[in-house]
């Protein structure tokens, strides 16, 4: 397998301003600004093969964004080596930019008041795609992402799901070899989420595009990725198959219920995490207790007023990795 991303022993620290409280500290900061060093990434080793769909997960502030910025050449490491598509990303950032695509929530590539087609043409020119190739590429992407009806509508009038589809098409205009996706399904409903996942999978299979996916959505990870890398405090704490992670943790759901009386449930695979007089939080092991069995049972056993089923939060996954329960 060809390695397209390789990080070896990477360290990156930042300086951040420290602001004291009170008037005196504010006045002092005018003449002497205190800074503190933050070690964002520590001894990070990571490699990604061509065509792989990798989940890169971790809680907020874990070092995910910093790692992506290092890989895309936006930042340079204090120490260690990074090679992306055979290039040093920081020294040859512009050259690398032609070969990678990004969908970052913070900076849309689409012009808000113009139709997506205009943005596609603009990006084609920005990435120096020859006109004939650009026309062909747009036709291809319009077909894959089913955005033919959206091409002439201003982006501001598109729904979030439609916009994400256009955003992804825009990121692929120049045939990137690696695509960085940051929370591509955030805020989408279940149906649209599923559609976007299908598109990502399709794109990966058809064009062998390597996908570097950052997501807090366990569904994205389960449905799309073969391998997951979990990062916390700037260090890799898990680097293994999603299958193993799923077996250990991702096959669990959290059920929050509000009841009109005390809840009792005695079922294998269901564990009560927290219980109040009218509330309860349960963890369900899907291998032992399918959700379609647990929920009706809850309704039979107690007067359910409200119910919410969710995945295990990333923070929880991290803490369980630390506890050694994975």
């Amino acid at each position: 397998m060809e390695e397209v991303i390789r990080l070896h022993n990477i360290n990156k620290s930042f300086r951040t301003a420290v602001r004291g409280t009170g008037l005196r500290a504010s006045v002092r900061s005018l003449v002497h600004r205190e800074t503190r060093s933050i070690h964002a990434v520590r001894d990070l080793d990571l490699s990604v093969d061509r065509g792989e769909v990798l989940a890169f997960i971790g809680p907020n502030g874990a070092g995910k964004s910093t790692t992506i910025k290092l890989i895309t050449g936006i930042l340079f490491p204090d120490s260690g080596d990074i090679t992306v598509l055979g290039l040093d990303p920081h020294r040859r950032r512009r050259e690398l930019a032609y070969r990678i695509g990004t969908v970052f929530g913070q900076k849309s590539q689409l012009w808000f008041h113009l139709p997506p087609l205009d943005s596609f043409h603009l990006l084609g020119n920005v990435y120096d795609v020859p006109p004939a190739t650009l026309r062909q590429r747009i036709e291809e992407l319009v077909e894959v992402f089913e955005i033919g009806d959206l091409l002439d509508q201003p982006v501001r009038k598109l729904s979030l799901g439609e916009r994400i589809r256009c955003e992804m098409a825009a990121s692929l205009i120049h045939h990137p070899e690696i695509l960085f996706l940051d929370e591509p399904t955030i805020g989408l409903d279940v149906v649209v989420k599923s559609r976007i996942r299908d598109l990502i999978r399709d794109m990966n299979r058809r064009h062998n595009v390597t996908i570097f996916l950052t997501s807090h959505d366990v569904g994205d990870i389960e449905k799309l990725c073969k391998r997951a890398v979990v990062i916390n405090h700037g260090q890799v704490v898990w680097n293994d198959t999603v299958k193993r992670l799923k077996y250990s943790l991702l096959n669990r759901r959290i059920i929050d219920v509000k009841t009109d009386g005390p809840l009792t449930i005695d079922q294998e695979g269901v564990r009560i995490l927290k219980q109040g007089e009218y509330t309860a939080k349960l963890e369900v092991d899907l291998d032992r207790a399918p959700i379609e069995e647990v929920v009706p049972r809850l309704f039979r056993n107690a007067g359910i007023q409200d119910i919410n089923i969710s995945n295990i939060p990333t923070e929880e996954i991290i803490s369980r990795i630390y506890e050694g329960s994975v």
């Binding site: 598509l85 070969r99 120096d128 795609v129 020859p130 190739t133 045939h175």
Partner: peptide
């Protein structure tokens, strides 16, 4: 009409190289 540069660059693009001349 496709120019020679168009073809060269397009071929480059598909092979993963930048489209630049």
């Amino acid at each position: 009409m496709r120019s020679r540069n168009d073809d060269r660059a397009a071929a480059g693009g598909r092979s993963g190289r930048p489209f630049r001349v």
